[in-house]
Design a binder for these strands. Structure first.
Lengths: 189, 189
DNA sequence: ACCTGAACACCGTTCAAGT
DNA sequence: ACCTGAACACCGTTCAAGT
């Protein structure tokens, strides 16, 4: 499964994506970068969108893998996981945008599955933090969504330059995530 | 200034955007919807991106206008402003995505200006809320960024279907914004 | 200054054919 | 099953010319 050629095409697409966004992922270039003709990709993906969806699913699963590895190493902290997430988003802006972009419904079952896996991971970490009294009680899913929203939004704002990067108000996405955990942890601001 | 034809083209672009996203904003259609030829837009905008940038700036300024109108009517509440923002985002997903999308640096001075106006508006509202003890003390800009992040991220997650829409964990973006204000207001969760 | 119609360039996609 | 080369369709953009 997942033939080497298929993986090769996805890897080529990832490189092109990082360099110039989705528009730069031209099937002709994906092909030539993989040593095949410009339309060989159609034997592995039904369309460009299908290729991008496969890439997005791969990326999100990689994020999950990293988080799980960290969790097994003994630090299943929700905060740690989210900080790693925003770090990834800033390191690979285009992949982050792709993963969180719009997907025509049904376009990718894999991506929906990866997203669910990712949410589940955070959910479990939030539950653990609640037991350790590091997060307030209340529906873990709701708190997960709040945390994920901040991480997502902060990364997006930073990437579009809408986060003041200078002066005393300066805040990196990681700072904002940390702020949220701080407010949630110690009441009283 | 802002000739009627120019506005007409932007309006046509907005309609097309709402219907099918940026790819659906085809200059040929923008032209024909405005009763001019397919390349008449080039007399008003240097490129498709320039047209989209003008549209984005118009939209964000409209959001600011609405918020200012509300503020003058006597409710300059940070929370109210943000709830209106997410409502707008869900009502016009494509405009929201466009505004918060990536802009090649220097592509639009107008859009950067509108973004700054928007942030300033929120900043002032946050300061007011702090004085009323409805928000914790601390750098207003930093708190503004946190609030904006949640609104942004929650709207994005909802639009990409990554927000659990069922079960007890169900949360609308407006719920998450309200949650944040609640956590910030009363310590203790 | 604003507009038109023809043309070009590029890229996603399809097709017919090869092994 | 996987690949190739030619061709088509579409759309952003440019050009020469009109008023």
């Amino acid at each position: 499964m997942s033939s080497s050629r298929r993986d090769q095409l996805i890897a080529a697409a990832a490189d092109l994506l990082d360099e110039g966004g989705p528009d730069a992922v031209q099937l002709r270039k994906v092909g030539s970068a993989s040593g095949v003709s410009h339309n060989a990709p159609y034997k592995h993906f039904s369309s460009k969108e299908d290729l991008l969806a496969a890439l997005a699913a791969r990326e999100l699963n990689a994020v999950c893998d990293a988080a799980e590895r960290k969790a097994r190493a003994g630090s299943p902290l929700a905060k740690t996981i989210m900080l790693a997430y925003v770090r990834w988003a800033l390191m690979y802006p285009e992949r982050f945008r792709l993963v969180s972009g719009r997907w025509t419904k049904g376009a990718s079952e894999d991506i929906a599955q990866a997203a669910q896996r990712w949410q589940k991971l955070l959910y479990v970490a939030v539950e653990a933090a609640q037991k350790a009294d590091e997060l307030p009680q209340g529906d873990p899913e709701r708190i997960s969504s709040l945390i994920l929203s901040v991480a997502h939004g902060a990364a997006n704002l930073a990437l579009s330059g809408h986060l003041s990067a200078k002066g005393k108000g300066k805040a990196e996405p990681s700072d904002l995530v940390a702020d949220l955990f701080s407010y949630l942890a110690h009441p009283g601001g």
